[in-house]
């Protein structure tokens, strides 16, 4: 029981940040049909921004989260308006290749500025944890989860209540009709992509609390974000949240997996992602549109 609870808590803690990572990816994917391969690069840029502020000015990464969001939002907006909007209606593989190339550019620039050395942020509360009913909870991870959930909630409200949020959702439903009622699609696309980049940046700043930094640190998160947003259902805030938590919990429980087949020892710690991916495949076969996705044509 103790072990079960600990695994559950670990899963939820790591699932929160995955949800945040997937959220930005899912928005861009669901609303503009862009497979944003630069998402990992934005996570990395947000993380390095937080690291730089911490190293130069001793700013706590938690305080860098909103700043990383704003800076990367502006950056993403400019990238969308100047480059991606030019080919956004081309077949999906064109933007796929474009964002791959953009990520190559960003990662190389980061490599040039910060070199390939592994960096880390050492906060005063880095190793601190508390124990509740026998379950150990690290403060840094709990804080990360809370911030991730707050951001997700704010985004949900903003998308559903604000005028711009509704314009974004309208554009994702029908570009032509949205244009007809006065939505400036180029601007809305810029905002959507900016949101995607900003959320990635915020996630990156949060990640510095528990992950080491390298210019390619975004790649595994890009891939997990991709998986999580499909697991939950594309383009919806709820989907990213459910998908992230499910992915986190599954891969946490997978660490307990331990078998020996034909003399071949398989330990779960190295196979967490394999188990999570097998679950993804099963989910897709049973529910081809994800856990929260609706069956629309």
């Amino acid at each position: 029981m103790q072990l079960f609870l600990q695994n559950l808590v670990n899963g939820i803690l790591s699932g929160g940040i995955l949800a945040l990572v997937a959220l930005g990816f899912s928005l861009v994917y669901g609303i503009m049909n862009i497979i944003n391969l630069a998402h990992g690069a934005y996570i990395m840029l947000g993380a390095y921004l937080a690291w730089q502020l911490f190293t130069s000015f001793h700013v706590d990464p938690m305080l860098s989260v909103p700043l990383a969001f704003v800076v990367l939002f502006a950056f993403g907006y400019v990238v969308q308006r100047t480059v991606i909007n030019r080919v956004v209606r081309a077949p999906v593989l064109a933007t796929f290749l474009l964002t791959f190339a953009l990520s190559l550019v960003f990662v190389t620039i980061a490599l040039f500025i910060w070199t390939g050395d592994t960096r880390g942020v050492q906060t005063s509360y880095a190793g601190a944890n508390f124990t509740l009913a026998g379950v150990t909870v690290p403060w840094a991870k709990l804080l990360t989860l809370v911030v991730a959930l707050v951001i997700t909630g704010l985004l949900y409200l903003w998308l559903h209540r604000s005028k711009t949020g509704r314009a974004i959702r309208a554009t994702s439903m029908d570009v032509g009709a949205a244009q007809m009622v006065g939505v400036r699609v180029a601007h809305v696309y810029g905002i959507t992509y900016g949101l995607g980049a900003g959320l990635a940046g915020a996630a990156g700043a949060l990640l510095t609390l528990s992950y080491p930094l390298t210019p390619t640190m975004g790649d595994p998160f890009l891939i997990k974000g991709f998986v999580v947003c499909v697991l939950g259902g594309l383009g919806s805030v709820e989907g990213a949240l459910v998908g992230g938590l499910v992915y986190g919990i599954i891969s946490s429980f997978a660490t307990q997996f331990d078998v020996t087949i034909l003399g071949q020892h398989l330990s779960g710690t190295g196979l967490q992602d394999v188990v999570a991916l097998i679950v993804l495949l099963l989910v897709l076969i049973v529910r081809p549109r994800g856990l929260v996705g609706r069956a629309t044509a």
């Binding site: 080919v87 064109a94 791959f100 190339a101 953009l102 990520s103 190559l104 550019v105 190389t108």
Partner: peptide, 17 residues
């Protein structure tokens, strides 16, 4: 890699197909 990426960006922007 920077120039390589930039060249792919230009190709996609001008020759998306």
């Amino acid at each position: 890699s920077l120039f390589f990426g930039a060249i792919i960006v230009l190709i996609v922007v001008f020759l998306p197909r």
